[in-house]
Design a protein around this nucleic acid. Structure first.
Length: 415
DNA sequence: ATACCAAGGCTATCTTTGAC
DNA sequence: GTCAAAGATAGCCTTGGTAT
């Protein structure tokens, strides 16, 4: 870290950081730690995570090599300053920098931002190389020049092996593919086109855009790249699908079918429909404590009902059987329901004191009867259209096809 | 019958965010 | 500083339809 920014950290940087922290944490409320479950154990320190993912996170965050060039938020003042400045509005950011940073400090921070952004791609690649499994099932393409190109070996019935390549890329919420080809050089050219589309989309969608604008940017990028490269996108077999986050409900994204570029309008319409349904509730990073700070469980459920409807409609129109689609959705939901209830309980513990004060169950919740508080919280939040208690909901009373609200009740309460 | 191809799903890995 | 969860990106596998 530069001397200038060490000074920044001690004086104005710390002050600015304090101001920014106040800005960023204005919504924060006191909360209690969640219940830790037994699971994956770290061989180095005995840490027990809930999943392979949490163990991986632990290893990355705690046991990273000392010579690692990848900066982390906690260890890098520049990164932390930069991160917090980004949380402020442009006007606030400008004011903070002008008021609290010297010219030398501003230049130093700018230098770091430029260096960091340039270097991050390289260090990410190094990180990937280090953490990637040495013996994956199928060997990856040896060169990073070929990243974004999937190599496929197909064994024919006669015993011959055929190798084909497929280029793919992600551009915001869109995922792009080209047709499979035998020649790696052709696939590389396809990949370059996809990269050009991606770059144009990313350049014009810094921050989140309204869904209409996003679709316009994507369509425009396709046209521009096609014109610039003099390449007909139909000829390279370009197809695309889009996805919206749905981790809360099913543990993963919901995506549209794949649309060839010839059916771009239909593909974009599908994306818009899913996005509008998803955007009824807050979209962004959150954890089990902050989940319900933005939207109540009832709002989340209402959004999910809409999202399901749109998903079913879009895939039905693509020729899929509705019963199969319903079965698919339900199997995804079933795998997620316990996690959702855990999140609800954790959130209830956290919010109970404030939210449930008016129903006089504060003491109950604080004494550890969170589950009781959870149910009461559900019934309180949803009093207008939600059943008052679990006992009122029975399987006999609920007809999924005739009553959407009852369906929501059943799934939330676990009856 | 065989070869080829597109599509969908699953999984791994990394980044970001926020609570404690 | 630690930890967990969501989001983003990318790679690979399986399946089923179509062309030869």
């Amino acid at each position: 870290m530069s001397a200038d920014l060490r000074g920044t950290e001690r004086t104005c940087g710390r002050e600015a950081m304090s101001l920014l922290t106040q800005e960023a944490s204005a919504r924060q409320r006191p909360s209690s730690r969640g219940v830790k479950r037994q699971g994956f154990r770290c061989g180095q320190c005995g840490f027990t995570g809930d999943s392979q993912l949490s163990l991986s996170m632990h290893i990355t965050q705690v046991h990273r090599p000392r010579n690692s060039q990848v900066s982390t938020r906690s260890r890098c003042v520049e990164a932390e300053l930069y991160r917090r400045l980004r949380l402020a509005s442009p006007e606030q950011r400008k004011e903070l920098i002008l008021r609290h940073f010297s010219q030398a400090q501003r230049e130093s921070l700018e230098k770091w931002i430029l260096a960091n952004n340039k270097g991050s791609r390289e260090t990410r690649k190094a990180y990937r190389r280090r953490l990637s499994k040495p013996c994956s099932k199928v060997r990856k393409l040896p060169s990073f020049r070929d990243a974004g190109i999937t190599k496929r070996r197909r064994r024919t019935a006669s015993g011959n092996t055929v190798v084909v390549y497929v280029a793919h890329a992600s551009a915001g919420p869109f995922r792009l593919w080209t047709k499979s080809v035998r020649d790696l050089r052709v696939a590389t050219r396809h990949r370059q086109l996809l990269q050009a589309i991606k770059q144009q989309v990313c350049a014009k969608t810094k921050g989140r855009l309204p869904v209409e604008q996003m679709t316009q940017v994507f369509a425009r990028a396709m046209q521009d790249v096609s014109a610039t490269a003099g390449q007909n996108l139909e000829e390279i077999g370009l197809s695309f699908a889009s996805a919206v986050p749905a981790k809360y409900w099913i543990g993963k994204e919901l995506h549209t079918p794949r649309f060839p570029v010839q059916r771009m309008a239909a593909g974009l319409e599908a994306f818009q429909a899913l996005s509008r349904a998803r955007d009824q509730v807050y979209r962004g990073r959150m954890n089990r404590y902050s989940l319900y700070m933005y939207s109540s469980p009832m709002k989340m459920e209402a959004a999910w009902v809409k999202l399901r409807q749109e998903y079913l409609r879009i895939w039905s129109e693509a020729g899929w059987d509705q019963q199969d689609l319903l079965a698919r959705l339900e199997s995804w939901e079933a795998r997620r329901i316990s996690t959702r209830r855990t999140a609800l309980l954790a959130s209830t513990r956290r919010n109970a004191a404030g939210c449930l004060r008016h129903v006089n169950v504060k003491d109950e919740v604080q004494s550890g009867e969170a589950e009781v508080g959870c149910d009461r919280l559900l019934s309180t939040w949803g009093r207008t259209w939600f059943c008052a208690s679990r006992q009122m909901i029975s399987r006999q009373m609920i007809s999924r096809t005739s009553c959407t609200e009852s369906y929501q009740c059943r799934r939330l309460c676990g009856c």
